[in-house]
Every structure is written in C-alpha cells, then in structure tokens.
Design a protein around this nucleic acid. Structure first.
Lengths: 344, 344
DNA sequence: GCACCTTACTGAACCGGTAAAGTCTCTATT
DNA sequence: AATAGAGACTTTACCGGTTCAGTAAGGTGC
C-alpha cells in the first residue's frame, strides 16, 4: 500500500513562517511553558495559516503518547452484524475515547491465536497505546501475553476468567439467579436456558449459576440448557427442540443469552402455535431496543451496554497511565418485566 | 495519554544479534534483493529470537506505506448499536483489510463538520492511508476536502451525491421501483414508505423514486411517505400514525427503509389488532437475519451488505494505489418475498 | 559594576525505521 | 594483468516530531 505523493506541511514550515525554531513550535503545541504569549500567538497563527497539525505518527515515534487503542473481536463476521451488543459496546467505548481524541483500531479475527499475534504486532509496532480484550475463554492465553509484553489492557470479563488483568465485568451469576428466581416466583418449575457459545467463559459462568439456581428451588424444578453460537438461527433451532416435547414435559419458561435468540424464540413459539406468555414465557438478555419492538414485548435482563463500554474505556485509560490491576464491576443486569413473561 | 516505559526491541538489537547493519535487516524484512540466503536466515532467526516486528509507526514516518484506513460514522451512537447494517458492513470491509494486514480506524462523530476535521487530522497526522466515506448529504463538504487534501477515499453512495469521488453504490431508485411494482402487482393501491433520515442523500433518492413509481401506476395509486431517524421507535410511531386512519383510508402496504423499523411496524400492527399480511403488508430493507426471525417472516429488499463492505474496501485499495476516480455499482437489492406481504 | 537568576528561545540528538549512495570483494571478460 | 560488473553489505541522510542541554538578553540585589 503506497501512499500518494505527500506535499504535506510540516513543523519546519510552521517554524519558518513564525520565525522560530521547530522546538518552539513543539512547545507551543504541547502547551508547555517557556514561550512568551506573543510568540505562542505567532506560532498558532502560522500553523493555522498553513493548515498544519502535528503528525501523530511522528509524535508517537518521538516517544510520547500513542493515541489509539485496539479492539480485536473474535467472532464470525456474519454473526457480529446481528449482535446489537457489539456496536453498542463500541459506541460506549468511543464516547470516552472521543473526549481524549483517541481512536479505536478495530479488527475482526478468526481465532484466539490470531488475536494474540495481532496484539503483539500492534504493540510492537507501536500502533496502540493499550487494548481492550473481550470474550475470555478457559485458559485464555491473553493475560500471559499482555503481561509478557507489558501491554496495558483491560479485560472484559469476570476476574475468575481474566487471569489477574484489570477487568470490567457484570455479575452474570447473580443476574442468572435473579432471572431464575423471578420465573420461579411466577410459578414456573420447568425452566430452560438457551445459552451462548460454550467455549466462552461467561457462558460457563451462567451455565453453572443457572444450574445451581434451579437446583436450589423449592419445590424442586427441572432445568434444560442448550449451547448455541448466539445466532438467531441457532436460537430458533434450540427453541424448537425444547418446545417439541409434550405439553407436560416441556419447559414453561426459556431464558436466552442474547436478544436476537429471544426474538427467534418468539417467532418459533408463534409458528408452533404456542402463545407467549400464556403457553411459554421468554426472557431475553442484553435488552437492546429490539426487545421493545416485538409483540409481545420481551422481558429482559437489561444492561447498560453503552455505559459498560464507556467504563471499559475509562478503565483502560487508567491502566495506560499506570494504575495497578483492579476489578471494576458494573451494575448487575436488572430484570425488566415486559409482555413475554407470565405465570405458566 | 502517556505510554508505559518502553524497553522494546528495535531493529538495532536485531541487527546487532545477527551481526549485520540495520539496513540489512530492513532489506530482509521488506523482501528486497541484495542479501544472501544465509544472511536473510540469520536475520529472521535473530528477529524471531528477540520477538521483534518492525514498528509500523517508524515505517510510516520513513515515508512508506500506511496500513490503516479510516471510517468515521456520523450517527447517534445509540442508534448505531441497533442497525445491523453497520456491523455487517464493517465486517465486510474487514474481510478485505485482513488480507492485506490493514486495520480499520473507527470513529463515531456527532456532526459532518467534526468528521471533516477528523479526516484532516488523520490524514495530516499520517494516521491513515485512505478513508471510507458514508452517509452522504446534499452539498456534502467531503468531496471538496478530500480533493484539497489529496486524501484517497471511496464514497459509499450514488455518484450524484458524491461529487466526483470514486463511489460504490447500490441502485436504490431501481430497488424502490421494484418494491412498489411488486406491491402493486399484488394488488396494492395504497402504499406507504417509512423512510430514513431526510438529510441523507440516499433517503431523498428513495423518496423521489418512490413517488415516481407510485405515480406511474395504472390504475392510479395513493402514496404516503414519512421520514424517521431509522430507530425502531420512530418506525413504530410512523406505523401507528399511518395505520390510525379508517380502513379504507389507510395504506395496505408499507415499505421500510431498514429492518429494525419493519420489525417495529410488525409489532405495531399486531398491537393495533391488524393481521400481517392479511390487513397490511410490510416490506423491509437491508434484510439482516432479523427478517427471518419474526413471525410472520418479513419480506425484504435484500442486499449483500457484507459483500458491499468488501467491495468498498477493494475499491479503496484501488484508489490508494492511484487508480483514477470511478463508479462501482454493486448488485441492486433484490426482492425476497416472505410472509409479510400478500394481496390486500 | 558584577555575580546571579529568570525567561525565552535555539541547536542537536534521538525515536525506529527506509532508501539511496557508497564500499569492498570476488568472478568474468578482454 | 587490468577492468568491469555484479553481489552483499554498510553508511548516511532523512521522515516529523520531542526533549534537553545550552545560550543570550534582561532584571535583581548588593
């Protein structure tokens, strides 16, 4: 990739026009002391007249800040488009980055190994000042790599998954328990969960919590759990197989790990002639706007994804500026009852 | 944003370890002639042992390639999360970037002016090698700016909007016409369209085309058009007001500019006690997976958004490598009839 | 009137690479 | 044996900033 001929203005031109040295221009643009107001003005005027802005590449090389943070996402591209979660998360991250004139370097990768390689080359190549790590798995290699490289990162995920890295997380276990208790309180005793990708750490946290929550119900209840890839199709398939059993043998309530699958579940129920919530209750997760657009509206575990992203970005800046590792819980998803849940 | 102390390996260390000069290492890593196989091997081995990768920052500064492309999106952050379009578009772009080891610099901006400023500073700061421009408006300032800066860009939008820039576009006018003809063929004579943001160029192209298409129907038909902000809520509101009229006075078919609004429309119809498609037909646009997850499934103008993104990225590389301006149409969205459309 | 500070600014080194010109050695040619 | 030429490297000059050790001018105190 070759760049076009760059007849670009540099600090030297500005210095010449203002009648000072490059050093003076640098001082002015970094708001450092050691210049008279008059000179400062002259420099800024010259820069404005020439349309000059400092090259962040050169600045980076000269050893000061890096104003880019990285985010690699390891999920099949086609699924990502569907997940309202990511775009909203990213927009939250951006909202904080913008304040500090930082940009987000985004990359979709196909495997955790590729992601690790990318982190290394981004960091070594001084392209990023820090990175956001998402979708932790069991025995994730990234904490070790980040440690070895000295790369400032913030991990999105429960501290039990993120190997000592600074982490930002929601208490999924508690949220799952709350969801189960809510459904139980409505009278449900046959409860299913359509989970996300089994390899993901937060999925197994939810799986365990769900199991325990249902097991601890009085009187005894029955549980089902299915793993999916988060896609609507998988959610539809899972729902179909759960609801295929005889009326007394099938779940009366289903919890979904994201809202796309819940929407799919809603449609499967309709297609099978089951009424929601009379015949079966559905409960979504994440609660994007989508949940309020269906009919019936979807009850959901809602969650300020935008704010979550913002907190992640703030935490990352903390890490970059040298704060030690820490654990930053954000508010637990809260149950928002709507039209898709009712007593069985 | 200060970086952590960087005890990082540089080209000098590699050169020392391999017993050659920096120049030799540079030659090796750029696969240029002038080195013996043996030396090349020694250099690569040394680099591997030290875990070195060339700093793209330094490379950029030294005047060679820039391996980052920019994308600024000017829409309210909270809406973006909802739009399946963008993530899918981005994933298409990425699919091509990855092949060339390029990354995407993403930024959400709040105004066209901010976007213009960002382009300037990205380009001046040598942060990007080129940029993707989306969401063109009437009298958009970006073509002029890109021209003035010499910034290689590709515009996503109809050539009539993109002021002579290389553009990649779908033929929205034809697609709208096809949608209208399809509904007319089913027998609809009262057709509405819930459009996107009025300020956007492609919205006005669709608006004009819709108007003409309906006007040219025989026997005469009636048209409604409403502008929205693309959000589900706005789509719901628009649908409610369209369907509030007396049965003989309201549209029997509604076309939506994206699928989120169509989903919202579906739910509004249900809430108003109208059956889809018996009482009213709905037709979505973009056709993400969402359209197949509702009940009834949504008929849609479908569109390979991923492929669209990929084509945009390929075209951008063309522009960066000096290809002259061009117009790259991608396939017109094609009508995919599903369960939400039927004769009135 | 002289030593001593500040203040305001300059000059040069440096960041980690690339690129073009220069050097040295070895082989082929006349 | 002298000359040319190719191959394999090295040297050096940037790229566009930052940083830091100077330095010259003006102000203070005694």
């Amino acid at each position: 990739m070759t760049a076009t001929p760059p007849p670009r203005v540099t600090i030297k031109d500005v210095a010449a026009r203002a009648g000072v040295s490059k050093g003076a221009v640098s001082l002015a643009f970094n708001h450092k002391p050691g210049l008279s107001e008059a000179t400062r003005d002259r420099i800024f005027r010259a820069a404005r007249e020439l349309g000059w802005a400092p090259s962040s590449t050169a600045r980076t090389l000269a050893g000061s800040r890096v104003d880019v943070v990285g985010l690699a996402v390891c999920r099949p591209a086609r699924l990502l488009g569907l997940e309202p979660f990511y775009m909203e998360f990213i927009s939250g991250v951006e909202s904080v980055l913008v304040e500090r004139s930082c940009s987000l370097l985004l990359r979709l990768v196909r495997s955790p190994e590729e992601e690790v390689g990318l982190m290394e080359s981004w960091w070594r190549g001084r392209q990023i000042g820090g990175s956001i790590l998402v979708d932790f798995r069991a025995d994730d290699p990234r904490p070790a790599v980040a440690g070895r490289l000295g790369l400032p990162v913030v991990a999105v995920g429960h501290p039990s998954l993120t190997g000592g890295l600074t982490s930002v997380w929601t208490d999924d276990a508690t949220a799952v328990t709350e969801a189960v208790r809510y459904l139980a309180a409505l009278g449900h005793r046959r409860i299913a969960r359509v989970g996300g990708a089994a390899a993901l750490g937060h999925t197994s946290i939810r799986t365990t919590a769900f199991d325990e929550a249902v097991r601890s119900l009085e009187p005894a209840a029955r549980a089902w759990q299915v793993a999916t890839d988060f896609s609507g199709d998988a959610g539809a398939r899972a729902t179909r197989s759960l609801l295929a059993a005889a009326p007394g043998e099938r779940p009366t309530a289903i919890v979904y790990d994201n809202d796309i699958m819940a929407v799919a579940g809603l449609s499967v129920a309709a297609e099978m002639g089951l009424r929601v919530p009379d015949d079966v209750s559905l409960l979504a997760w994440d609660d994007s706007q989508l949940c309020r657009l269906t009919h019936p509206t979807l009850s959901a575990m809602s969650h300020d994804v935008h704010g979550f992203g913002a907190e992640v970005a703030r935490t990352l800046f903390g890490t970059i500026t040298g704060e030690g590792p820490g654990s930053h819980p954000v508010p637990t998803p809260v149950l928002t009852p709507r039209g898709s849940t009712a007593p069985p």
